[in-house]
């Protein structure tokens, strides 16, 4: 080994490094205006998204407002343990998973069905009207949505009137029964979002090559066969993508809606992680910030694992994932 050679080598490496550094600086200098534009959004993201992630460290501490986030004493996993061992844990987790899975499964096929059905409507007017009407409920606010649910399901409302025709004498208090809660939540969600959910499939259907349909017609395929063998494979990729995206928000379970629909009578099936955090952390007279934050972290982690996992799964079955 020639010592001088090594030294020479080193100096050239540092020279190259120096040069690239210089190049980089000139690059940044050349587009400095882009960085100026970007400052405000970047600060927003850091303050309102990353600072709360730091703030979530109170889950491992006993948060004291006087001492602040940094000064509060560490307690390790105590709050997590308390949550896992608490009486509420199993019930809340069961409700969250149950409601999410129910929404995911029940809410998935209908938009596809609607899109396929719209795709075979010949009258343009009818198609447009159907789209206009089915998209509309998407824009109703959660509060109004829940208001409408209460009215329709009122013991003297139209659903009970209809039931009385079939011999159900007493008006059923749907909102007061824990057993009905999940179905009401899921099906009102489908009512609100079926139209909007089908837009993406309609777009995917227009990209199915017409030649495939022509070839199928020549071969004497009926419409049902064409749907099964041409259309459905054509929208498969989109469907998987939608499923993954829904998995990402799997545990969110329309928290704002659940909170509005919740009442003491249906609490046993309507208490989900998010509402539990809200009730423990912000509503109660003695807010347990650290405990609530720990539950929040638990949820975020599970959701994160779910989205990564479903993306991997999608790649495994041969579809493109999100990234």
């Amino acid at each position: 080994m020639n010592v001088t050679g090594v030294v020479e080598n080193k100096s050239t490496i540092s020279e190259v490094k120096h040069k690239t550094k210089k190049k980089l600086l000139t690059k940044i200098k050349k587009s400095w205006q882009l960085y100026v534009l970007f400052i405000l959004p970047l600060m927003y993201i850091l303050v309102f998204h990353y600072y709360p992630m730091y703030g979530a460290s109170i889950a491992f501490k006993n948060f004291d407002p006087v001492l602040g986030i940094g000064g509060s004493p560490w307690v390790g996993f105590e709050h997590f343990k308390k949550f896992f061992e608490s009486y509420d844990f199993v019930r809340v987790l069961k409700n969250t998973l149950g409601l999410s899975l129910y929404s995911l499964i029940a809410g998935f096929p209908l938009p596809i069905l609607l899109a396929l059905s719209l795709n075979y409507v010949y009258s343009k007017r009818f198609k447009k009207a159907a789209q206009l009407i089915t998209y509309a409920p998407h824009f109703i606010s959660v509060v109004v949505m829940v208001g409408i649910i209460f009215m329709i399901l009122d013991p003297r409302g139209p659903i009970n009137n209809l039931l009385s025709l079939f011999g159900v004498k007493e008006g059923i208090n749907f909102m007061g029964e824990a057993d009905y809660f999940k179905s009401i939540f899921v099906f009102s969600g489908i009512w609100q979002n079926v139209g909007f959910g089908c837009i993406i499939y309609l777009a995917a259907l227009t990209s199915v090559s017409p030649e495939l349909h022509e070839a199928a017609i020549v071969d004497g395929a009926s419409k049902i066969r064409r749907i099964w063998h041409v259309d459905i494979p054509g929208i498969m990729q989109t469907a998987v993508l939608v499923l993954i995206l829904n998995m990402g928000s799997f545990l969110d379970t329309g928290f704002e809606k659940v909170l509005l629909m919740q009442n003491p009578l249906n609490l046993s099936s309507s208490q989900v992680i998010d509402t539990y955090v809200y009730n423990v952390g912000l509503v109660s007279a003695l807010p347990q910030y650290s405990y609530a934050a720990a539950i929040g972290i638990f949820k975020s982690l599970v959701a994160f694992i779910l989205i990564i996992g479903s993306n991997k799964l999608a790649k495994k079955v041969g579809q493109d994932g999100l990234w």
């Binding site: 309102f48 990353y50 709360p52 703030g55 990402g248 955090v277 952390g281 912000l282 972290i297 959701a303």
Partner: peptide, 15 residues
């Protein structure tokens, strides 16, 4: 990343 992971309700409230 902020779309996949967030600090949660309580830290946001405290902020």
């Amino acid at each position: 990343f902020t779309m996949m992971f967030n600090g949660g309700l309580i830290p946001n409230y405290l902020l």
